[in-house]
Write a protein that binds this DNA or RNA. Structure first.
Lengths: 392, 392
DNA sequence: CTGAAAGCGCTTACAG
DNA sequence: CTGAAAGCGCTTACAG
């Protein structure tokens, strides 16, 4: 570094980075050496202190640019006790180990869309998402979740992978937010307003369409979302005095294939189908639609079918799927914001930032599969990205 | 710790964790103290050394269980110089800043599925995925990518967010793999066999169906995938002496809305549609399907439409979409494996682990939208999760 | 087999 | 305004 004309903006790499292949990333010491200052000064200008005077600042900035320096995340995290990372646990599909890359991974879209919502707001706060999948059958799920927690500042858990007791224990070490789970004394849960959405749907089917026999195709066992949806439907059905089928035969596990199989089994078993099949989510409704079509059963003519979530795919189906919309990305965004405030408040106030159980609004989206008329003609461009239509 | 009966497995938290809310995560020092050994010993038993003798091992393990200890990721990473994290850069949708949470985020499924593939194999190697989105218009995309790099052991980049020069510079500090990009001297690229897939599709449309006029609906500008697909189609068209429309009017930007708008514009402009519209991906084909339907144009009767990727949604459309399948998750899995070997080899051999440009096989999946007959009837359960069918 | 010590790359009081 | 030093929580030679 015998040569340091301040005018040379991007001078060729000096001895510090001997060009070529396996260069190491430069450290703050490299920058300090090139700039001719202490590492403390480098750190100060990089962290926007007001202290360093202009010349120091210039020298440092020039060295940083020349070397292409950025601070090591682990070192910084260790020092400031903040990683700017939130861990996200997604439930691993069953097939993971057996038939890896099986085709039926469609249902993953839902958690992925939630993650998008998280990522967008995380970005605003300078955080990134650290993703790990965990099987619910996994022997030491607890350990793997904890391990991820220690690589992050807080955790967001999809679905139910941990028992409430495990959750409680975990949340003593790091802030935890669950999605579609259940709140615990130290954990916040975020979910869509399943109850309200399902009641609106049920009333529509019962009163506007006059259907008198129903079935509820459940999601996977123990899913709080599925349970709540099923209960809300049952409540409305009871109030109206209409018949509701449910139970083990009626389980789609949130999957297209699961929904199709359930219908196949029922038909094979000679069961008489109800007038309307209310599915726990869109994905399983897709399977139901396929199975019914395969048997020449008309939807909604013979049997009405509805979904839940209003995934993008819902409007591309034939018939277009009536569903209950939740702003999926909002779920993720809210989960992150909640966690973020917990992270900052960590070790201070004892009160939760918001309620311990946060419900986001849902909205009935009537399309064709419930028996409403085909949507009013609009520009195809609109149709391609817009949602519901009016009902007759 | 005046009391340490080895028989007490999960004794109530001692002074180290005073119960309640804002507890800190225990450190290795806490474990050492409780176990009555040095931190070195704790580290040794936790890292599976053969050294520690049974009794030491027991004491440590018991303390670890009691405290719920897991090592801090940042500290460990700093020490072993490995974070066990790979950074993943996804392109941020345009609407991000303006109309946040717009509806048309369907096209995100593709990168998300790729990420799933990465995650699955990453898991096997004990790695997690650190996700960050970057806008391609973003002023300092370079800095934000580098910042993520320093929080990881290597980087996988979706789409094109960096110039080749920037890529090159980045790859001097950390191993880099691109997806659907172009290889550089120090960077590996992974992509589907666009050329082969498109040629197969083109030949099918030309020879099996006898179509004589075509259009190629491009993806977004500069996308290597789209360019290659377009060129392959053009080449086959030229060889067969059939007409191919393309150009700025024919751009769907990989999006459903984009595809629909393009068709709307063309029809409004009085353009005569070709016999077959070959779309750069499934997503834009969906939009095309919608637009054509809105104008009462029959598919495939009047106009055939094809996609590319064979996303799960393709088989749920009406008509079912003929497409070119790439194993999307394989793309991700391969990208990760490649990067992983680069990470391990870092600073050693100079040779790349595999070729610098890795193409994964693709396969034509004929369904209805190209003009092939409806798929042979099979069990609906199969239909719900299985792919293509034979062609007439 | 085990402990004391150095070191990973940063940030931030603490003294000038 | 700036530098020397301590410290973040681990791992791993280095000596016993």
């Amino acid at each position: 570094m015998s040569f340091d004309d301040p005018a040379l903006e991007y001078q060729a790499p000096g001895a510090a980075s001997a060009g070529g292949h396996g260069d190491q990333a430069p450290t703050i010491y490299d920058v300090a050496r090139v700039a001719g200052v202490s590492i403390a000064s480098v750190s100060r200008v990089l962290n926007g202190q007001q202290n360093p005077r202009q010349e120091t600042r210039d020298r440092v900035l020039r060295a940083v640019a020349e070397l292409g320096f950025a601070p090591d995340g682990a070192a910084r995290a260790l020092s400031v006790r903040l990683k700017e990372v939130v861990g996200v646990i997604v439930r691993r599909p069953r097939w993971h180990d057996s038939s890896m890359f099986a085709d039926e991974d469609e249902n993953l879209q839902f958690p992925d869309m939630i993650n998008r919502g998280m990522e967008i707001v995380a970005q605003r706060h300078g955080f990134d998402l650290l993703i790990r999948s965990v099987g619910l059958d996994e022997p030491d799920a607890g350990r793997r979740v904890l391990a991820l927690a220690r690589k992050s500042d807080g955790l967001i858990l999809h679905d139910r992978v941990l028992s409430p007791a495990e959750l409680e224990r975990l949340s003593r070490q790091v802030p935890v937010v669950t999605l579609a789970g259940e709140p615990t004394s130290s954990t916040v849960n975020v979910h869509g307003d399943n109850e309200g959405g399902m009641r609106a749907l049920a009333r529509h089917l019962i009163h506007d369409h006059g259907y008198a026999t129903f079935a509820f195709l459940a999601g996977h066992e123990g899913s709080p979302d599925s349970l709540t949806r099923g209960r809300a439907l049952a409540s409305e059905a009871a109030a109206a005095g209409v018949t509701l089928l449910a139970g083990d035969d009626w389980r789609g596990g949130y999957q297209a294939a699961g929904g199709a199989q359930a219908i196949e089994r029922l038909i094979a078993g000679g069961v008489r189908l109800p007038r309307a099949i209310v599915c726990a989510n869109d994905q399983s409704a897709i399977g139901v639609l396929h199975a019914l079509a395969a048997h020449g059963i008309s939807v909604p003519g013979d049997v009405a079918v509805t979904g839940f979530d209003d995934m993008p795919v819902a409007r591309h189906l034939r018939p277009q799927l009536t569903s209950v919309r939740q702003s999926i990305q909002d779920l993720g965004a809210t989960a992150f914001e909640t966690l973020y405030s917990m992270i900052n408040r960590s070790g201070q106030a004892k009160e939760s930032p918001r309620g311990r159980d946060i419900a986001l609004p849902t909205r009935l989206v009537r399309r064709e599969s419930c028996g409403c008329g085909p949507q009013s003609v609009k520009s195809a461009a609109q149709a391609a990205d817009l949602g519901g239509a009016a009902c007759a």
